[in-house]
Amino acid sequence: MVSTLSRRTLLGGAVALGATGLLAACGRGGSPTSAQPGSGAWTFTDDTGATVTLDARPTRIAGLNDAIASLWNYGVTPVASFGFTGLADDVNFRGKDLTRVTEVGTTYGEIDIEALVAQQPELIVTHAYPKDSSGTLDPQKPLYGFADLKQQQTVAGIAPIVTIAMSGSAADVVERTVEFAQSIGVSQEALEQPRRDYDAARERLRAATASGLSVMAVAAYPGEGVYIAKAPDDPALLSYTELGLNYPDPGGSDYYWQQVSWENILDHRTDVVLYSLRAMSGADMQQQPTFAQLPAAEAGQVFPWEFSAMDYVAQARTINNLAEHLEGSRKVT
Rank of each mutant, 00 (worst) to 15 (best):
E203G: 15
I113G: 02
F93K: 00
A50Q: 14
G38L: 08
D112H: 13
E327C: 06
D148M: 09
V302I: 07
V302C: 06
E192W: 05
R8P: 08
N73K: 10
G225H: 03
H325W: 12
T20K: 07
S211W: 04
V218T: 06
T126Y: 02
T53H: 09
V117E: 13
G300A: 14
S34K: 09
G105I: 03
A56G: 08
D271T: 10
N73S: 14
G40Y: 10
G223T: 12
G300T: 12
Q286I: 15
K331T: 07
T77D: 03
A41T: 13
T102V: 12
E324G: 06
E189C: 07
F146K: 00
T136Q: 14
R204E: 06
P32N: 06
D132R: 11
V155E: 01
A231Y: 04
A19P: 01
F303I: 03
V76Q: 08
Y275G: 01
W72H: 05
Y198E: 04
V302A: 08
T107K: 15
V125F: 02
L277G: 15
Q152Y: 08
A200I: 06
D271Q: 07
V302Q: 01
L54T: 07
Q140W: 14
R278F: 06
T59G: 15
I158Q: 04
I319W: 01
A14N: 11
V2M: 11
P37S: 10
A88I: 06
R60N: 12
T9Q: 02
N65R: 03
L205P: 03
A115W: 02
A236C: 14
Y129I: 11
Q288R: 09
R196K: 05
A118W: 09
F84N: 11
R269V: 11
P304V: 09
N264C: 09
D284R: 08
G145L: 02
A147F: 04
I111P: 00
R195I: 09
G225Q: 02
L213M: 05
R28H: 11
F307M: 09
D254G: 06
T163W: 05
V215I: 10
A41D: 11
D267E: 13
G157Q: 07
T177A: 05
S239H: 14
W305Y: 13
P304D: 15
D199Q: 14
P78E: 02
A67G: 02
Q288K: 10
Q315E: 05
P194K: 03
G27C: 12
M166T: 15
A236Y: 08
L87Q: 01
P58K: 02
P232G: 05
V313K: 04
L191Y: 03
D199K: 10
D311V: 06
T33K: 15
A41C: 13
G109E: 15
T43K: 06
A115S: 13
H268T: 15
T53L: 14
Y256A: 14
D148W: 08
S167N: 11
Q259P: 03
L5P: 01
K96A: 08
